[in-house]
Write a protein that binds this DNA or RNA. Structure first.
Lengths: 190, 190
DNA sequence: AGACTTTTGTGATGTATATCACATTTCAGG
DNA sequence: CCTGAAATGTGATATACATCACAAAAGTCT
């Protein structure tokens, strides 16, 4: 499917835009391709864009002082990714975004999003609901992290994203679950 | 300060409404008072409202199968609370909201919020930014939970809400941090 | 295919935190 | 002010998980 159609279908689930409105909306996106392993946002960067995933898989992650990695999100097609704290506040990135596989994305600047939200009410409606859903998902994950052990969280993750199992190394899955790769390995080999 | 002024100042930080618009906005809120210990939303309820805290302190929490409590949020004045998953999706509540102290709130229905968002663009703008901020805060807490030990999280919490120390029992603070009350007690007595 | 890198498995050991049990203190209501 | 309930402190023990170390297996590139 063409990027434009792909985005259109995604938006249509939350907001009804006329064809003209959607054309206007789409005109602000830049189509970009990345290779596996490439960095899209690195710690310390000024963050001015967010990314809608067309194909491939990104990871959003934080590296602590001991160089340990924590994954906030695996971004698959139709997901959005950025360092939203930095993007919204103007602060430097503390969170990185990388390509786990070759990836195709649509890139949108913060300024353009705000301009569109301001000009077209239904576009603001779309973005409100996108964040509403993200907020609810984030609360759910918080609860799961407090309530469930690593094995339970692992099964939850695979149920939600079966595709991940084949695409991403177990080290990364461990970094998402918040356990060591050794523990994750032992979870399903004993 | 009057509830109306209090809400007006809160909104003004994100959206510029005319006086007429704000009067319209305010007209949808119901002013309610609760006693310490009262339940506002209980597991299994149909959730149709969200609550803006004027005074006092609420807790939003989940009880697991072993009757263990996990606190998602302490809601202080100017904070909003509800079971947003249930409120947005129409599902039954899985999360509870209770009063830790006597509390005054403004109550807004989901239907009225959506009506207002639809009628007045700037109101939708306000709600988009409210959730944007909540989303970013939630991601930060997720990272902290994965990255930092209980002591670190405890200090972080007290730094952010010094008031909590005197208002809420340590058991509840432990339930927010995701540790047992015994462990929390030992953190600052040894 | 061969060489090198990345990923994964697994034992041994250490550590933060949970759980259980009970004592002590603090608080709220009659 | 007294009394029972709620909140807190603290020892003993259990457990999930981390860390370190090294080996095996699987990918990747020229």
């Amino acid at each position: 499917m063409q990027p434009k159609e792909f985005l259109k279908e995604h938006i249509a689930k939350t907001a009804l835009l006329t064809d003209d409105e959607f054309d206007y909306f789409f005109s602000f996106f830049k189509h970009l391709s990345y290779k596996k392993g490439q960095s899209i946002i690195a710690e310390g960067d000024k963050v001015e864009h967010e990314f809608f995933v067309l194909g491939g898989c990104l990871k959003t992650f934080y590296i602590n002082d001991d160089l340990k990695m924590f994954i906030l999100q695996f971004a698959m097609p139709t997901w959005w990714a950025s360092d939203y704290n930095a993007l919204y506040s103007g602060a430097k990135a503390t969170v990185n975004v990388d390509c786990i596989t070759d990836a195709e994305v649509l890139c949108l600047s913060n300024a353009d999003r705000e301009k569109m939200c301001n000009n077209i009410h239904r576009i603001e409606h779309f973005f409100r609901w996108r964040t509403n859903k993200g907020y609810v998902a984030s609360q759910k994950r918080l609860l799961s992290l407090m309530n469930n052990d690593a094995k339970h969280r692992y099964e939850e993750l695979l149920e939600q994203y079966p595709a991940l199992y084949n695409i991403v190394p177990k080290t990364l899955i461990a970094a998402y679950l918040g356990v060591s790769r050794e523990t994750l390995s032992r979870l399903y080999h004993s």
